[in-house]
Design a protein around this nucleic acid. Structure first.
Lengths: 148, 148
DNA sequence: TCTGGGATTGCGAACGGTTTTCAGTATGAT
DNA sequence: ATCATACTGAAAACCGTTCGCAATCCCAGA
């Protein structure tokens, strides 16, 4: 059956090859932020004859077609998520690596204002917050200020 | 003479070798955000027998000693700035590559609040804004994101 | 349905930034 | 000054990513 992303690709007029179909399926089913290696790992489970080079090429293709978005979380490799209309950011749980998405209109407005004050018009931006769960923040919290 | 960073290094008890002295001087004099290659370029001008490997090692050393801070601007290489007490962020002029530092207590507070609402305690974070000058923003303001 | 030719693939080699290995050298505590 | 130790330079290794090339695939057109 046709995955969400596959449909999107066809709309954009991309040539649908077997491997693109598989990668689209993998990405459609993903609810996390996989890196290329992870996408490849999942794709191979569906069809073993997909090379990592093709995954790299396809990710780039889909990124250029604005079907997916690259997320740079500073860990040295590119991660991806489905492209969405609304701007959001990421909170990374440093303990588990879990990534939580959030959006804040106020934050957007403030950021916009700051740029304007500096004499600039925003063309892009990114915010990442690294944190640990409040409940057990004591263990490895690097710079803790108070502890109730 | 002794550079600002060199003094800091000695305070921290680091062994002061000739090349560390030179690199400290280079960094003390820098008012931008040089990458390793650039630091090496400047260091070699003072003493030609400094290898890039040593620059890499020294940058890491200084980073671990919290004398300098790594800045990841998403361009695929590490950039550095002197460590400062106050948290600040960067606005990158996509036209010229110029980097403008800014701080916003309100932004910090809001970010803190968002994390808290999500049940997290912040251990780190970063914000980058990419923009073009307001005065001549018309020309290429359309070309939103560029890839790092 | 069959076909032709440009697009796509797999493989391995190349790449750019960074780290490491190792033998030789310099540092600072004594 | 001496000596153990930490540091350095050069080159190789690394890691994520891209590229070159020959083989293969897709699909518009017949």
């Amino acid at each position: 059956m046709t995955s969400r992303l596959e449909a999107l690709c066809m709309e954009k007029g991309l040539k649908m090859t077997g491997q693109r179909r598989v990668i689209s399926q993998v990405l459609s089913e993903a609810d996390d932020h996989p890196d290329v290696e992870e996408v490849h790992r999942r794709a191979v489970q569906i069809d073993p004859r997909i090379s990592i080079a093709t995954v790299y090429r396809t990710m780039r293709l889909l990124e250029d077609a604005q079907v997916i978005e690259r997320v740079d979380l500073g860990d040295g490799r590119a991660r991806y998520e489905e492209a969405t209309a609304d701007h959001h950011h990421h909170l990374i749980d440093t303990r588990t690596g879990r990534i939580i998405e959030f959006a804040s209109p106020e934050l957007e407005a403030m950021k916009e204002r700051i740029a304007h004050e500096l004499g600039y018009k925003i063309v892009g931006h990114r915010l990442e917050i690294y944190g640990v769960p409040l409940d057990d923040a004591g263990d490895d919290a690097r710079d803790e200020e108070e502890r109730p």
